[in-house]
Structures are given as C-alpha cells and as structure tokens.
Design a binder for these strands. Structure first.
Length: 413
DNA sequence: TGTCCACAGGAAATACGGGGGT
DNA sequence: ACCCCCGTATTTCCTGTGGACA
C-alpha cells in the first residue's frame, strides 16, 4: 500500500514538473512539412534571414517579367539555414506563381548523405516519376534519357535545388554536365539550378568547360547572431516547453553561447533541448547552471558519438591507450602502447595491425583530440611518441565502457 | 665526433571490396 | 553472371632523426 502511494506521488510530481510539452518542436526531423513551414513563417516574419531572403527575391524576380534567372549557389556553414530557408522560399514562390498563373515547379535533391552520381540522378528521376528506383543495371545515359522524356512536355519554370552539391561522390563533373549543358539543350522548360554548399570553392575542381557554361549567382548565409538565435529559441520554447519552468536569462545565455561558438541554429536548439531534458529528469527548473551542464554533456556525447562511429581498430587503439595511461602516471610510449594494443586485440579476437598502421591510428586519435601524441627524443634511448590523455577521467571512463560495449564485452573490473 | 636507439613517417606494393560495364 | 577497375585500407620496405652517451 505504501509503495502505491509513493508511485502515485512520484507520477504526480513528474506531471507537475513537466518541462517538455511537445518534443517534436525540438527536433525538426519529427515535424512534417506543413508544420515546418508554419514555424518558418513565424521565424522569418521576425526579420531573421531577411538579407538572404531579399537576395533570393532579387534573383528570382525576373521570372515575373517572363525572364529567365541564371543559376544560383548558396554558401554558408552548416546550421545557417540554407536548406530550410530555400525550401521555405521555394514554397512561397510556388504559391505566388500559382496566383499569377505562371507555371513553376521545384524539386529538392537531398544530399545530406553522400551519394554517387548515379543515385542522385535516380532520385531525380523518381521525383519526376520517370523511373523506379534502381540499384544498378541501368546506364547513366538511359537514366538521363528517361528524365528528359518526362520533362519534354513541360514549358514552365523548373527549379532543381541540389542540396549539398559537394556530396556528389565521384563524377560530379558528369552530373553537372548533364544538368548544365545537356538538359537545357534537349528540353524546352526554363531550368533554374540552385546549389548549396558549405565550401566556398566547390566549383574549383570542376571541368573548366562546364564551369564556363555555368552562369551563376551567389547568395551567402551568415551565421546567426545572438539576436536571431534568441528569436528562434524563443519560438521553440513557446511551442515545445513549459515556460514557467525556465528561468530568467536562460534563453539569452544559450543564444549568446551559441552565437559566440558556432552560430548554428540546430546546435542551439539541441542545447536548449538537452538543458530541458536534464531539468526534467531532476525535477527542477531550467537554470543557468543547468545550461552549463548541458554544454558539458553535449561535449561528452560528442566524444562518445565519434568513437562509436569510428572503425573497430581505432576503438581498440583508444581503449588500449586509456587502459594503459590509467595504470601509470608517466606518459606512454608507442612501443608499450602497441604491446597493450596487441594484448587487447587477442582478448577480443581482433586481428592486430602492424605497428606502422598503429602509429597512424595514434596520430588520428591525436587529431580528433582524444589523446595528445608528441614525438620526443630520448637520445640514445630512441625516438618515440609520448602519448598522454587530457580528457577528464569521467569522459575517458565513459569511453572505455562504450568501447567495451561495442565489442560486446561487459565492463568487468 | 661518431654511434646508436626506437621509433617516425614517406613510398610503393598488395589486399580487399564493391560497384559498373557487358 | 562474369570480369574488370578503381578507391581505400593495410603491409612491406625503407630512410631519416634528435640527442644521450662514450
């Protein structure tokens, strides 16, 4: 009976202290298109990305005089809203065109994960309903033919938004050649290409013959400043969180920290979400101090996520090094580390790499910031890397556990 | 000054694996 | 179904190196 009451009270207090009311608004992936656009409507009406939208408008304006805009390239770091802004803009553009009886359609080719040229064309064909999804067995030429066939009858404006263009693996040239040279010559529609990239120089290693053909306009997306981020965050807070539970200044702090370090809206929302999550778990309000902890947590998650997505060999190397440095205080040398690594490999039934390869992996870990490895000469006692770990014990212990789990071992001490 | 340790790290060879062409 | 080709991972082989020590 006692426990019954206890549980009831627990649930009661959890309900009262609920902070996250609608989790979906903390993660764009979970919103459908309509909702996304509605959120954007609110954001853009607050002058966020105003300059960029202005640029877009002047680029597409010729459409309404019957002209033909040149192609467009969007630059900006990740999380500056290239994709979201452009999609929103295209949606609006389409609505306006419909009102003015101008034929227009657009397609969004999402390359957030790298794809070969073939897959991209296949995607395009699928959107056009020109072909089904092929794994292989159809030549690029044939695929292009099908796309052209489908486009032949169309006479209006046709906008293809190629998101993250530099993710076209292998043969970006032939992909562009098709879009820029071949397509406009074979079909009658008015084609406008929109590319987005976070690298300013993605055009540099393109076949110069295509490059000279490519008349292009550029729009730059600046990182969000603190004011923009405040707008974005406050909207999310209104939609997703219980505002009573958020202390004064938290919003400003998150915005300030984010704009200072990256200006990435997605990361800012992530920080907000993490803070709320911690607060909810602990049954407190979201405080400034909690934001700092969330920041730490995200940092920790970063290391964990990175090692989880790394190759097994790299994980094994890191484990060996962590285990070794935990045992001794002095720095570890390559030879010792390699021996430890071999031992660990035999334990987990993994083929050990050569010392040469091992050495490269150590350097890689150094680059990622897991460890410090500096070459140091001990005179006649040789020249070797001194390996130390600078991570807080908490993180390195966590990493150790994670790696063991990756190898299906229980952390036994 | 020369020697020599214990590797670093470059270059080339080789293994591997998956996708494309036929 | 088959073969080929190419990019990547790893190995093999090798030369280079800073400084303690004699």
């Amino acid at each position: 009976m006692q426990t019954n009451l206890k549980i009831e009270r627990q649930i009661q207090s959890l309900l009262q202290n609920t902070i996250i009311l609608d989790r979906r608004f903390l993660d764009d992936e979970q919103l459908d298109r309509g909702e996304q656009f509605r959120v954007l409507d609110e954001i853009f009406s607050l002058d966020v990305r105003d300059a960029e939208i202005q640029d877009l408008s002047s680029h597409f304006a010729p459409m309404f005089r019957g002209g033909h805009p040149v192609h467009l390239s969007l630059y900006g770091k990740t999380g500056t809203g290239k994709t979201v802004t452009m999609l929103y803009y295209l949606n609006m553009l389409q609505a306006i065109c419909r009102k003015k009886k101008i034929d227009m359609m657009y397609i969004h080719l999402d390359l957030s994960t790298p794809k070969p040229c073939f897959r991209v064309l296949n995607d395009l064909a699928c959107y056009l309903d020109a072909s089904k999804r092929y794994k292989k067995g159809i030549s690029l030429d044939e695929l292009m033919g099908k796309i052209e066939e489908k486009m032949e009858s169309y006479r209006g404006y046709f906008i293809i938004f190629v998101d993250e263009i530099d993710h076209v693996r292998r043969d970006l040239d032939s992909f562009l050649k098709f879009l820029v040279k071949r397509l406009p010559q074979t079909v009658a529609l008015k084609l406008v290409l929109v590319f987005s990239s976070n690298r300013l120089n993605w055009l540099e290693n393109i076949d110069p013959r295509i490059k000279s053909f490519l008349k292009i306009n550029e729009v730059f997306f600046k990182p969000y400043n603190a004011v923009d981020l405040q707008q974005i965050l406050s909207l999310r807070i209104r939609k997703a969180l219980n505002q009573q539970m958020i202390e004064e200044g938290v919003l400003e702090k998150i915005a300030a920290v984010s704009s200072r370090t990256h200006g990435d809206a997605r990361k800012a929302v992530e920080l907000l979400s993490k803070s709320a999550l911690i607060a909810e778990k602990e049954g407190t309000k979201v405080t400034m101090e909690l934001v700092d902890r969330a920041l730490d947590d995200i940092e920790k998650d970063k290391y964990v996520a990175m090692i989880k997505s790394s190759p097994k060999q790299l994980q094994a190397v890191l484990y060996a090094i962590i285990a070794l440095t935990a045992r001794v205080t002095k720095p570890v040398y390559t030879g010792d580390a390699y021996a430890g690594y071999q031992l660990f490999c035999s334990k987990i039934n993994l083929r050990a790499l050569t010392q040469r390869a091992f050495s490269d992996l150590v350097s890689e870990l150094d680059m990622y910031g897991f460890i410090q490895a500096r070459v140091f000469s001990h005179g006649r006692y040789g020249r070797t890397k001194e390996i130390t770990i600078n991570l807080p014990k908490e993180i390195s212990d966590r990493l150790r556990q994670v790696i063991l789990m990756e190898f299906d071992l229980n952390p036994i001490h």
